[in-house]
Amino acid sequence: MASSASSSETIISLKLLVDKSSNKVVFAEAGKEFVDFLFGLLQVPVGSIIGLLRDNDLAPGSGSLGRVHESIQNLDPSYLLPNLTKGSLLNPKSAFLSSTLTPPLLQKFVSPNPEIMPNPWRGGIVFPTTTGHVTSIPYENTTEKGYVRGVVTYMVMDDLTVKPMSTISSITLLNTLNIKDVSSVQEKKVEIDIKKGLELMQFSLYSTTVLTDVFLGHRE
């Protein structure tokens, strides 16, 4: 699916296949942009995700990690070790190495001063790691943002399971879900901006029907 971007906002298009009888998402047809966003969430520290959800008045799931985040906010700084600050715990650095490699909807998590230096030995880019070793990525692999190839259409399940899409896999899934009448399945096109992206983050913390919850309004 294509994505479009203005100077102020990135929009990702997504096509949902909805079972009308149950009013649930069967799966979504997604392009590289949406899959990059989902995979990129694993690169964002939990503290940053919870903080961002709170800043946008979204509950950080039904578990207890939100309470941990709140505890740090309320803790007197004198209880922290001298080399730590509340900010380092509440807003830790992300694992993104460069804004040129980061999915558009996750740009705000990029460190403003990533440690990147040229690698004269392999003609690529070297990224220092916490172990002291380096990882080299050839220049030809750094021209496209994100993680997956853009020439493939991906199937994203309601629980955010991702796999390459094919006609056989689609038919198999419909049979598995016991959907025998194809006419009961309809397409629904949706758009994902930063607000919807945050809602996807929120529901992914406790729901296994994330696409249904966010786009069809099944809220607890």
Rank of each mutant, 00 (worst) to 15 (best):
M1V: 14
M1H: 11
S6V: 05
S8T: 07
I11Q: 10
K20P: 00
K20F: 02
K20Q: 14
N23T: 06
V25K: 07
F27G: 03
A30M: 03
K32V: 03
F34R: 01
F34N: 09
V35L: 04
L38K: 01
L41W: 08
L42Q: 15
L42M: 13
S48N: 15
S48C: 13
I49D: 00
I50W: 06
L52Q: 10
L53K: 02
N56C: 13
L58K: 11
A59R: 07
S62V: 08
G63D: 13
G63M: 07
L65M: 10
L65A: 06
G66V: 00
H69S: 07
P77A: 13
S78E: 10
Y79G: 03
Y79T: 00
P82L: 11
N83F: 08
K86M: 05
L89K: 04
N91Y: 07
K93H: 04
F96R: 11
L97G: 02
T102F: 03
P104S: 14
L105V: 10
L105C: 12
Q107T: 05
Q107S: 15
K108L: 12
K108Y: 10
V110G: 01
N113T: 08
I116F: 03
M117V: 07
P118A: 10
W121V: 14
V126M: 05
T129S: 10
T131H: 11
H133E: 14
H133Q: 15
V134S: 04
S136Q: 04
T142E: 09
T142D: 01
V152S: 03
Y154R: 02
D158G: 09
L160S: 07
V162N: 12
P164F: 09
M165R: 12
I171K: 15
L177Q: 07
V182P: 00
Q186P: 01
Q186G: 10
K195E: 15
K196L: 05
G197P: 10
E199T: 05
S204A: 15
L205Q: 14
L211R: 00
L211A: 03
L211N: 02
T212W: 01
R219Q: 11
